Each structure stands twice: as structure tokens, then as C-alpha cells.
Simulated assay, not measured.
Amino acid sequence: MNGPAKPGAGLEASRVSFARGDRLVVDGVDVTVPRGAVAALLGPNGAGKSTFLHLVAGVVPPEVAALTLDGDDLVGLRRRERARRIALVEQDAQVPDALRVDHVVGLGRIPHQSAWGGDSARDRDVVARALAAAEADRFAARRYDELSGGERQRVNLARALAQEPELLLLDEPTNHLDIRAQLATLGLLRRLAADGLSVLAALHDLSLAAAYADHVVVLADGRVAAAGDPVDVLTPPLIRAVWGVEATVLRHPSTGRPLIAFAPAGPAPDAPTDAAADPGRPVGSAPAPA
């Protein structure tokens, strides 16, 4: 969806803080997403991932922050200008009732349109390409409120792509998707990054993050617990400290990227064997006829 990569440093976020009441939800977070990279924002529920994305997108203003995109200050940008440069894919987007899918995706063109211009031929072309990229074109004429959760997620992604952003923020983009759609979505993010887009996605699946991200940032209690290459960051001690679970980190046989296998929360039941079912019969032999 994007043209050739532009020079610049991508997203630079430092000292990002936000409090809700007396509680610091995001506490001095630093995140860098180079242009043309996919970064994964990881952490348990309540770590501050969604809030951080909202702060960068300007949905809520940070209390303390230095935010730049390709060297330009984001905090001082007007909302419309920020929407031209940053798109946010939320888990539950607010969409007017009975709106058709292609019209929902067309909402992504609003920041680029004049007050009286309406849809241009280019707007319609961008919407069509966004629908195709997100694999949502086959239900473009259906009503958004009649779609499944996974179909809505694809439409929300297409709407963000229609904004033609320089920075794409995603809050659990694989939520509600089956495994094929998850892999297709993350593969699309990699291709978009190769075209020069900066991508920051909050994810729960550590193995998917390790498979597709160039850089991971782990949040815990609103602070950065670790950041860097997935190979260096996603280690058993870090996973134990942040998520409170035991894990073994393997290597994918084809890509060499980390694969995380989690230990069961409790003692695993012994698998039944033929011998257990019939102590007098050797394992693997056929049962005696009745």
C-alpha cells in the first residue's frame, strides 16, 4: 500500500507516561521502531500495551512524552495531520450501524480528503487495494455489523491501510483469526514493512512475535522489562519473570527463529496405554475378543 521507503528514523518514543487516577499505567516507556521494521509489543494483560498504542496514536494525550516520527514531533501535530501519518487498528473499532464494509474502509480516506471533495477515483482505488491486501474484498458489499469477529478484524486492518500511513499500530491484530488468517496477516505486515512502513503490533502469541518481528519490546506493569532481538529477549528466565510460566525456547527447523513451548500449569495426566487398560496384555497388542 505504500510507496518507496522514505529516509528517517521511524518512531522514536521516550519517557512516555500516563496515569489513570493514582495508578501509572505507562511509566516512562521508551520504544524505537525503525522505518521498514516490524516491532512487537509484548506483555501480560494489564501491562500497558493498548494504552501505549493509544498514546502514540493520539487517542489519549500522554502526560509526559517525547514522540517523533521520522524526526517530526508528533505531540504538536493536529489530529488530522497525525491521522495522515499514523493508523491504529483496534480490537473493537467503533463503526456506525448498517454501514457497508467498503464504506467502512473508505473512512480511512477522510484525513486525506477536503471538507467538500468527496471520494475521488484515487480514493476508490486505494480502498479497493486495501480490501484486497487484507483479504476482505470478497465481503466488501456486506454490512459490517453482520460480519464475524475475524472478518471485522480484516476490515479494520483494511481501513487502516486505506489511510496510507507511515506508521501502522495494531492492537492484537491476530485476535479472532484462524491460524491461516493469522499467518496471512503477519505476512502482510512483513511485506508492508519491506515497502518502508513502520509497524508496531501488540501481540499475545510469543512464538508468532518471534517468527515475524525484527524487534520485540516486553512491558510489565507499565515499564519496559526488556527490548531487542527476539532471540536475545525471549528467554526462559525473562518469560518466567514477566508471565510467571515455565517455557522452553527451541529453534524453528526452517527459519532458526525462536519457538516457545510452555510447560503445563499443573501436573499433566499420564497418557493411557494399552497395558493400563488391560494389565495382562502386552503394549500394542490387540485386545482379546469378547
Rank of each mutant, 00 (worst) to 15 (best):
V105E: 02
L189I: 07
A261N: 03
L99P: 15
P96L: 08
A288L: 12
H54A: 07
D214F: 13
P289G: 01
L24Y: 02
L167W: 09
W116S: 01
A268S: 10
R223Q: 11
A19R: 15
E63K: 12
V104H: 14
G244E: 03
R35V: 07
L42H: 06
R82C: 13
A83D: 11
R190K: 15
S285V: 04
A265R: 14
L157D: 01
L197E: 03
V56F: 09
P230Y: 02
G10Y: 10
V249E: 00
G149D: 01
L189F: 15
V64R: 15
V60Y: 12
R100S: 12
A40C: 14
G256H: 01
M1Y: 06
L147A: 04
G117P: 07
R154Q: 05
L169Q: 10
V38I: 12
A19Y: 07
L200Q: 08
A83R: 14
A5E: 08
A162L: 06
I260Q: 06
G3P: 02
L77A: 15
N175Y: 00
G58E: 02
P165Q: 03
E63P: 15
K49H: 05
V25W: 04
Q94V: 13
D73L: 13
R240E: 09
D171V: 09
L11P: 00
Q153P: 00
R138V: 02
A132F: 01
R159E: 00
R124K: 03
A184G: 05
V64C: 08
A268D: 01
D205Y: 13
A115N: 07
D178I: 08
S120T: 15
P269V: 05
G149C: 03
D278G: 02
V31W: 06
K49W: 00
L161M: 05
G280A: 15
P230F: 00
L157R: 00
R138G: 01
S14F: 04
A93K: 11
G284I: 06
D70A: 12
P253N: 05
E172P: 12
A277I: 04
A263E: 06
V127F: 11
R154W: 00
E146H: 10
A211S: 11
V283K: 01
A220L: 11
F52R: 02
L161P: 11
G228H: 06
P289F: 03
V59L: 12
V31H: 10
